[in-house]
Deep mutational scan, measured.
Amino acid sequence: HNLTITQGKLFFHYNPKLCLSEIHKMEEVSGTKGRQERNDIALKTNGDQASCENELLKFSYIRTSFDKILLRWEPYWPPDFRDLLGFMLFYKEAPYQNVTEFDGQDACGSNSWTVVDIDPPLRSNDPKSQNHPGWLMRGLKPWTQYAIFVKTLVTFSDERRTYGAKSDIIYVQTDATNPSVPLDPISVSNSSSQIILKWKPPSDPNGNITHYLVFWERQAEDSELFELDYCLKGLKLPSRTWSPPFESEDSQKHNQSEYEDSAGECCSCPKTDSQILKELEESSFRKTFEDYLHNVVFVPRKTSSGTGAEDPRPSRKRRSLGDVGNVTVAVPTVAAFPNTSSTSVPTSPEEHRPFEKVVNKESLVISGLRHFTGYRIELQACNQDTPEERCSVAAYVSARTMPEAKADDIVGPVTHEIFENNVVHLMWQEPKEPNGLIVLYEVSYRRYGDEELHLCVSRKHFALERGCRLRGLSPGNYSVRIRATSLAGNGSWTEPTYFYVTDYLDVPSNIA
């Protein structure tokens, strides 16, 4: 807008934040220059609390790290170098490059900038070799853009010569660093050979998330399962459950009422301010606690030095998902009996873990797994792929695949051998790939016309006998059925096997 004052003059007093240069501009645009008398524009009460600059400061050096910015700028000295009290560095987070010096300023003089007072450097006698002032900004957020400017702080001049310097606002972004852990990993099994893994992005990506790394490792069953005799009275049979499938998407929606109208769909109840505040506090606490764990609990591995020492970490090797089922080394339970199943799973520490690289999504279907087997899954978020990966501390989750139908069934015939004193040795093959492992066998036998009897055969007993022995049988026709019990439950009964026990007292003698 054009402003013209045809008559009258300007009068400025007691404006401590208004620089004289701005008042002189007002004289020019209003056409009143030359009308004012000496005392109409006070030299001592206008701009006496402001830094009124008329020179431009330029930054000469900028260096960044993930949490620091090192700045240096060209030296500046007023005509009387004693008038320079120091520099004021202003900075704040700036997602967009549209910041002005006066953003967030209120009537009390406060604003949204963080201000650092910096002492002037030592003055050199040689004007050509003056030290460049600077400042190291610490405690910054990774991968965050900051708006920065600097200006001088000078003393009051009796001659009211307006001098000083100020830089333009520059924008500097800190470097990326390792992201925080992925949030809320959930693993479920939808079949006997697959596990579905879902997660949420890290709360602090500290860069642009480029991919996720998912490692999985087959877990050995508890050692007590191999040692305890679950045929003993009072000892509860062990059981394991597989990871249940995901709930429906509708039930997972946030901010939804727990109660549904019987007449149909209901609208979600909005969260109160107290609920939102509580969630923010919980989120802040979780982030602080995660940072504490990362800094205190997890110790970084030592990389190899120039002395030739090897990095103890196993090298990563990509495998196809079809090879995942046989990740671990199978060892027989008892070496003397080769027909026992290889369900003991000690994992070799030198073995390469299978892994998958996930790009542009937060889910993965891990296939080719062994049925009813526990897996430990390790999830890392990465925001750099080359020249070397920059990934987060791992988040861990466990899951067990679903049982395989008929995996616990005894394959092959049940054979028998009759000894003296009416002892019958029953023999059968253990299931080759049971659900988890076989903890015991149930032997059901009966003599024709009598009630059915049951015998429990422990895992250890089966390994020693290759089956079991029935003792003290009365003469007669017998039928026997056997079924295995694994961590997933009972298998199917075998087809009945028949044998006849004679009275050993009636056996004919070869003595003449």
Rank of each mutant, 00 (worst) to 15 (best):
N339V: 12
A395L: 06
M427P: 01
G489I: 04
G322E: 06
H371P: 13
S509W: 13
D261H: 14
E260S: 10
H454G: 13
D311H: 06
K271M: 12
A381F: 01
K406A: 14
N422Q: 05
S223Q: 07
R319F: 09
L379T: 09
T288D: 06
S223N: 08
I482Q: 01
E389L: 08
D385G: 13
N360L: 07
S248R: 11
G368W: 06
P508L: 14
V327C: 15
D250Q: 11
P338H: 12
K287N: 14
L235I: 10
L487N: 14
S509R: 06
T347K: 13
P475Q: 07
E221A: 01
V358S: 05
I366E: 00
L487W: 05
D229P: 14
A335N: 13
A394I: 02
L464G: 11
G234S: 12
P338Y: 10
V296W: 15
T328K: 12
T241V: 11
D311K: 15
E362M: 08
N360E: 14
R447G: 12
V345C: 12
S479L: 05
K236D: 09
N360C: 05
P431F: 01
R459L: 12
P431N: 02
R466L: 04
D409K: 09
K233E: 09
T340Y: 09
Y396E: 08
C456T: 02
Y500W: 11
T303H: 07
I366A: 03
S392L: 01
G308H: 14
A407C: 01
S363P: 08
A381I: 02
F337A: 04
N255F: 04
A263F: 06
Y498M: 11
I482V: 10
L364P: 00
P496S: 05
T485F: 08
V423D: 08
T494Y: 03
V397Q: 03
D311M: 10
E249Q: 13
L487R: 06
S283D: 08
V507N: 15
L505Q: 06
F372Y: 14
E465H: 05
G374L: 10
Y448D: 13
L235F: 09
E350S: 15
G368Q: 14
K236S: 11
Y375W: 06
F215Y: 05
E260H: 14
E227S: 10
D409R: 07
F289E: 05
L487K: 15
S304L: 11
E290L: 08
Y212T: 14
Y498H: 09
D273R: 11
D204W: 09
S348W: 09
N255Q: 04
L228H: 02
P338G: 09
C468D: 00
V393H: 14
F462Q: 11
C382P: 01
V214N: 01
H416A: 08
S458Y: 12
H352T: 04
Y259S: 12
F215R: 07
G306E: 04
S274V: 13
L426I: 02
F246N: 14
V439G: 05
T386A: 12
L228D: 15
Q219L: 06
Y292D: 13
L235C: 11
T307C: 04
L293R: 15
A335F: 14
Q380H: 13
V443H: 00
L225E: 06
V296R: 07
K287A: 03
Q256C: 04
Q384E: 14
F499C: 11
L232W: 12
N339F: 02
G449N: 06
S458M: 14
L464R: 08
S283M: 08
S479H: 14
P312Y: 13
L440Y: 09
A407K: 07
F372M: 04
L453S: 07
C266F: 03
D261S: 09
L473D: 00
F337V: 08
E388V: 10
T210L: 10
Y259M: 03
S305A: 10
L277H: 11
W216E: 03
A263P: 13
I410M: 02
H211C: 01
D222A: 05
T502P: 09
L437Q: 12
V414N: 01
L321F: 11
P475S: 06
Q275C: 06
Y500I: 12
Y504F: 05
S239R: 09
I482Y: 01
E362D: 13
D503R: 07
S344C: 11
S305I: 11
G368A: 01
Y259L: 03
V365Q: 13
G472T: 05
P300E: 14
S315N: 13
N477R: 10
W493L: 05
S458N: 07
G489N: 13
S458Q: 03
R459Q: 11
R316S: 11
M427D: 07
P508K: 02
R447L: 10
S479T: 10
G374C: 11
S268D: 07
V296S: 12
G467V: 06
E260K: 02
Y292E: 11
E247D: 07
E282Y: 15
H461F: 13
E356V: 15
K287L: 04
E217Y: 11
R218P: 09
V480K: 01
L379E: 00
D503M: 12
K271F: 09
T347P: 05
N383Q: 07
H352C: 10
T340M: 14
D506G: 13
E417Q: 06
V501N: 03
F372G: 05
G322N: 07
E442I: 05
E260I: 07
F499A: 04
K361H: 09
R218T: 10
S268C: 08
H371Y: 10
V296I: 04
T494A: 06
P300G: 10
G264W: 13
T333A: 14
L293Q: 15
Q219M: 03
R471V: 03
W242A: 04
G374M: 05
H454S: 02
L235V: 10
T494F: 01
S344V: 13
Q252H: 09
Q252P: 05
F289D: 15
K432E: 15
S223H: 12
Y441W: 00
I209K: 15
F499G: 00
T347C: 14
H352F: 08
M427C: 06
V329T: 09
S248P: 12
E451A: 14
G412D: 10
D273E: 12
H425P: 01
V424N: 01
G368S: 11
P346I: 15
L505P: 13
V359Q: 13
V424K: 00
T373Q: 15
V480F: 05
S486Y: 01
T343S: 05
R459H: 10
D250G: 06
G306R: 08
S392K: 01
F372S: 12
K278G: 03
V324E: 02
L437G: 02
A395N: 05
K460D: 07
E279S: 09
P244V: 10
G234L: 10
H454M: 05
N477C: 08
P346A: 15
L505F: 11
V424E: 03
S392V: 02
S223D: 14
Q252N: 02
V443P: 01
Y212A: 14
P387M: 12
T485I: 08
E282H: 04
D291M: 09
S268W: 04
G325S: 12
S274I: 03
P338S: 09
E247A: 10
C456K: 01
H416V: 09
E290V: 07
G207W: 01
H294A: 14
R483Q: 12
R376F: 13
E389H: 07
S367D: 13
L225A: 05
V296F: 08
E420K: 14
V423S: 07
S284F: 09
P332H: 04
E495S: 08
F499V: 13
Y478A: 00
S348T: 03
S223K: 09
K271D: 12
P312N: 11
E452Y: 04
D323L: 04
V414M: 07
E258A: 13
G436D: 12
E281W: 02
G325I: 08
H416G: 07
T415F: 06
Y230C: 11
L225F: 03
S367W: 09
D408F: 00
E249P: 11
E290A: 14
F355D: 03
T494V: 03
V439C: 03
D385L: 06
N477G: 14
S492G: 07
L369C: 08
S363V: 14
Y504L: 12
F285A: 12
S268T: 13
Y292A: 05
E388I: 01
D250A: 12
C456P: 03
H454N: 01
K361W: 10
L455R: 07
Y375T: 02
M402F: 05
N383W: 05
T328S: 15
M427G: 13
D229G: 07
L440T: 02
Y445N: 02
